[in-house]
Design a protein around this nucleic acid. Structure first.
Length: 247
DNA sequence: AAATCGTTCAACCGCCGTAAG
DNA sequence: ACTTACGGCGGTTGAACGATT
């Protein structure tokens, strides 16, 4: 399920992230924030492109990211919001704290889409039994349009909402153990996530955590000197309010 | 036991919107 | 108004894994 590591024409690594890379990225962002994704890998000592770093952080390394174990409620929310918003995964993710757009998208394509399609056909049958033919035609075309354009459609929404009994099985504990290794890494490094994030984690992003034994790289992958750990903002100009604004 | 097929999901790619110069 | 840099988003890919033949 992982891509084999390789390098692009610039020598930047692609493919699967190693635990060591995860640690470097998490270390750096926890200490200095994502002041510039393109520059970040250079200063964090990573031979990755900025986009790759951002994706890794947003989807897996940032605190409180939930993995697997979709609840019935979450499934219903996704189905409902997808009926309203279409493939606006980031907008859907806003309503599901801890879930990334990428994960929601994957979850949709692997399991919820089938449910939604089933519900559409079942819903159409129900309509056929209950409603007049003219309404049926109208609704069927609505559903078809929905599938094609993923636009809002109240009827679809109602059908989806009827689907609670179709919620998938609860995820197994094995699933949980296999997918949470990044959080384990994070917790190993920084301690309890809840502890960190419930306190000053997000409001004091640049405050050096004494728990972190971080060694800023002295030379980066491009053989340039890497001087300041946070080149965006020299320490002498550091102000707490600025930090808050930046996050 | 081996081969094939289907599913899952981490990661990449390319496009778009926005802000700054 | 135009260009450039950047972040963000959604579509797609591809390798691992499990199920089936």
């Amino acid at each position: 399920m992982v891509r084999t590591p390789c390098r692009d024409e610039n020598g930047r690594k692609k493919g699967t992230w190693t635990p060591e890379e995860d640690r470097k990225l998490a270390d750096y962002i926890t200490k200095y924030g994502s002041w510039n994704w393109r520059q970040l890998p250079k200063y964090a000592g990573l031979a990755r492109c900025g986009k790759s770093c951002r994706l890794r952080w947003m989807n897996y390394l940032r605190p409180n990211v939930k993995r697997g174990n979709y609840t019935k409620e979450e499934d219903e929310i996704i189905l409902n919001l997808h009926a309203q918003l279409g493939n606006k995964w980031s907008a859907i993710a806003v309503h599901l704290p801890g879930r990334s757009d990428n994960e929601i998208k994957n979850h949709w394509h692997t399991s919820l889409k089938k449910r939604a399609n089933y519900n559409l056909s079942e819903g159409s049958k129900k309509c056929n039994n209950k409603k007049s033919e003219s309404n049926i035609t109208k609704r069927k075309s609505n559903v078809e349009n929905q599938n094609a354009s993923a636009n809002n459609n109240n009827m679809h929404e109602n059908i989806v909402l009827e689907s609670s009994e179709w919620s998938p099985k609860e995820s197994s504990s094995e699933e949980l153990s296999s997918i949470d290794y990044q959080q384990d890494i994070f917790q190993e490094e920084f301690g309890n996530l809840e502890e960190i994030t419930s306190g000053s984690f997000w409001t004091e992003p640049f405050e050096v955590d004494s728990k972190i034994d971080f060694v800023a790289p002295s030379i980066d992958y491009y053989c340039e000197l890497v001087c300041p750990p946070s080149p965006f903002m020299p320490h002498e100009f550091f102000h707490f309010d600025d930090c808050n604004n930046y996050w």
